[in-house]
Amino acid sequence: MSERISVLKTYKIYIGGSFPRTESGRFYTPTNSKGKSLGNICLSSRKDFRNAVVAARKAFGDWSERTAYNRSQILYRMAEVLEGRKEQFIAELILQDSSAKQAEKEVTVAIDRLVYFAGWCDKYQQIFSSVNPVASSHFNFSAIEPSGVVAIVANQTYSLLGLVSYMAPIIAGGNTCVILASENKPLCSISFAEVLNSSDLPGGVVNILTGKRSELLNQMASHMDVNAMCYANHNWEELIQLKEGAVENLKRIKSYNYELLSSEIENPYLINDFQEVKTTWHPIEVIGAAKASY
């Protein structure tokens, strides 16, 4: 009796809630440190990025206007689904050079991080908003609103955590995003897309591309319909490239260098970094006010 032939996974990209192959038909084959191939990974093109931005823009209105409670539940649902698929991610991480212990840790931290940011969805607004005591008869308040479509260059070191840690605060804050996964460790990103796809997350809120930074960074930075960028690596040259590219539409660029296994990234300021402050004024009728003594 011959040994069973296992079914290999085809890794595709994730745009608008579906899993297309790259329109370019190209692929690349990253390997682990032992030289073992990780598979044929889509080498996303600039057109794929463009399509992903279209999907993200389309999803923005609905996602940003959902109740915060609903967004919170969807992020929590991601954690639930990821918990159930833990083993798959651990296996992928081990294939991508993690030890079993490291892999276990990365997955559990990722799950907990989703829970952490799920809890912020309906709270950060109260932290960062204010009622402003203006010196005239007006009610004046500042509330925060999502920036819009955010392009994320995921952290290269952590295949899963490097994506989840930045995606979570950004979508918790009502933004939609396009994520460029870790170039050398792309496996978890696409498997995570499958988690997203079964977590009630509307299509287009998170879009995930695999491919080469050298091909895509310029496009990401200069795209006029991307409102902000999150750069999660420590590469000065790349950051300069992004900052220069972002000038034309004055994209907000934020770069981070958190140690992702520690909890230092777990703070609401990360959510706030992808928010705009809106201040609203309205007159207050003053009849009788001087006499009121309640």
Binding site: V134, H138, S142, V277, T279, T280, W281, P283
Partner: peptide, 14 residues
């Protein structure tokens, strides 16, 4: 955004 007013400024108002 100014509602039923316009061009109002105040140091406390972002």
């Amino acid at each position: 955004v100014w509602a039923n007013t316009y061009n109002k400024f105040d140091p406390t108002s972002p």
